[in-house]
Design a protein around this nucleic acid. Structure first.
Lengths: 104, 104
DNA sequence: CGATATACATCGTGTCACGAAGTATATAGT
DNA sequence: ACTATATACTTCGTGACACGATGTATATCG
């Protein structure tokens, strides 16, 4: 998928991936794979950004001798998802403009 | 509208704006206004990029003592629009993932 | 015992939207 | 006559961001 097209979707995708239950980096990548592929460097950058902007909180848990950082969505994160849904109308109208036939 | 979300759409929007008839910078901005707002600096950057990648050709015309650069879409440009339409299925599935209810 | 999966982190690079500022002409308002 | 405002295009600098490359470290499986 086109890089530019992904950009606006990734942050919200990641939020959606932890919406129903806390998750961690590696799992998020696997869960999102059917929809969007993103590399580890991209994901961790996004998670850091979402943490800084208070969209999620982090909690480190030891699991099988390895560290795992569980991410938990905040109210602000949930609000961001809702905001995205609102924006979707605008996106759809852009799509229709682009995909319109040759009338006009 | 979210900057990141716009990014993937702008190039194709501009192509769509000149699809049915050749147009020029100022007019493109006005035509796109109901769908996406973009500044002149943004538009001209995009036009230059689309020209470099052979999505459109340029022709300078004198109009009322002022210069006007008319942009004409190429076959490659038309193909880019078609490609975008194909990609749309993927975008929609991402949207459904994000907007899905609370069933897991 | 070496490969593969799990798990997270950092750095550098290239792409890109956009504000700011500039150049230049025509028209409408006062 | 002067001053906005609209038209029309250009260049520069900045900050945001995805991603490949690279690194660290442990567990499991063949």
């Amino acid at each position: 998928m086109d890089v530019q097209l992904k950009r606006g979707l990734l942050d919200v995708c990641v939020l959606a991936a932890i919406k129903n239950e806390d998750s961690y980096g590696y799992k998020i990548i696997k869960d999102l794979k059917p929809y969007v592929e993103l590399s580890e460097s991209t994901l961790y950058t996004i998670l850091k950004r979402l943490e800084t902007s208070n969209m999620l909180t982090v909690r480190t848990v030891e699991h099988d001798g390895r560290l795992r950082k569980y991410y938990h969505i905040t109210d602000e994160g949930l609000a961001r998802i809702e905001e995205f849904k609102m924006e979707w109308d605008g996106i759809m109208s852009i799509y229709r403009f682009i995909a319109r036939g040759d009338e006009q």
